[in-house]
């Protein structure tokens, strides 16, 4: 069983098609469309916090945080072909790292982000070692168990001194530095925006690098990759580590933005939401993470609007209908659309 991968990476798919098609004009125009869309998105992203109220800014910030977490999951699942239904655990580790550093040691919030990343990288790498022996549905099962157990782990009494148990930890909201004319919400928005952009660029470069090719080779054909001299166990564990790093940084940001964490902030619903975001955005298509983040941030709200009492049911129904309509997510849809487009311009 392999992951439902749609495309290799953003931009690459159309470019690759260009090589194989007799008329590269179509592919170039696709790449152009993508680039234009990217620039427009960037502009909207910069303008948004000046045009919306604080609550919407908060929501947009959370959307980007989820997108970063999903980007991490995408590296694991989309690029390397391993499943995880338990990424909420890494998100939680990142969040607790940040919260404990700030709460117990009074360390500045910015410093908590790299530390959370490093700790999650190590934790993810270590979890990746036993996961090496698991495939497909078995890995899904083991990580599902991790997701269910996560809140319990953070409630354990030996750690209570650090985690404050079920009470949770309250964090104060940081102000904008250097006297920037931004309110705290806007500042956190831009901080997240910058980190998100950095995360995306890093992910793209990773995909284009030798390491990225090795990861994809493992996804597509582990045996062939192994016989080509790729150190499969190392790369698979690395993928877990890098993926957890992304998700951990997102968790740390999430803790800072929400200003409060407790074990029940990280129930298996969180892990599951990340998977939903991944699949809806498109497994293997990196920009899909943003759409996935938007889906899990806003669609539950829309569901709530539609029916207060049954919001969960409406959300579930939307998820299922999405899977009927676009089983390979937005990425798959986009790929199909681009293929159709370039076919048409080819026939012209």
């Amino acid at each position: 069983m392999s992951a439902n991968t749609t495309t290799t990476a953003d931009g690459q798919a159309p470019a690759k098609q260009g090589v194989s098609l007799p008329q590269p004009a179509a592919a170039t125009s696709n790449a152009k469309i993508m680039r234009t869309a990217g620039v427009i998105l960037l502009a909207i992203g910069i303008a948004a916090p000046f045009l919306s109220g604080n609550f919407l800014i908060f929501q947009l910030t959370m959307m980007m945080i989820y997108a970063i977490a999903i980007l991490g999951l995408n590296i694991l699942t989309g690029i390397n072909g391993q499943f995880s239904l338990g990424h909420g655990a890494f998100y939680a580790v990142g969040a607790y790292t940040a919260a404990i550093m700030m709460d117990q040691f009074g360390i500045g919030y910015l410093w908590t982000l790299p530390v959370a990343g490093i700790i999650c990288f190590v934790v993810g790498f270590l979890f990746g070692l036993p996961a090496l022996r698991l495939e497909g549905v078995y890995l899904a099962l083991a990580t599902f168990a991790l997701a269910v157990v996560t809140p319990q782990l953070f409630k354990l009494s030996p750690f209570e001194h650090w985690t404050s148990g079920v009470m949770g930890i309250v964090i104060s909201k940081p102000d904008a530095p250097f006297g920037l004319p931004l309110n705290p919400d806007q500042w956190l928005y831009f901080l997240t925006f910058a980190i998100g952009l950095l995360a995306y660029v890093c992910a793209r470069n990773l995909v284009g690098s030798r390491t990225g090719r090795a990861l994809m080779a493992i996804r597509d054909n582990p045996i062939a990759a192994g016989s080509m001299g790729v150190n499969t166990p190392l790369f698979k564990s690395l993928a877990f580590g890098v993926s957890a790093l992304y998700t951990g940084v997102a968790g740390a940001l999430g803790a800072i933005v929400v200003q409060y964490i407790s074990p029940d902030s990280f129930t298996f619903t969180l892990s599951v939401a990340l998977v939903v975001g991944l699949v809806v955005g498109g497994v293997g298509w990196l920009p899909g993470a943003l759409f996935g983040g938007a889906f899990i941030m806003f669609v539950p709200n829309i569901a709530e609007e539609l029916s207060k009492g049954l919001s969960g049911a409406v959300y579930g129904l939307i998820m299922i209908l999405m899977m009927y309509a676009i089983p390979t997510g937005l990425g798959g849809l986009l790929k199909a659309a681009l293929t159709a487009l370039s076919k048409r311009s080819m026939n012209r």
Binding site: A3, F83, V137, V276, A313, G316
Partner: peptide
């Protein structure tokens, strides 16, 4: 694909629970 199935099961979970 497997993941689409997983999402549908999650959706089912949410519907029944809610």
């Amino acid at each position: 694909p497997v993941l689409s199935h997983i999402v549908v099961f999650i959706g089912l979970f949410a519907i029944i629970n809610s």
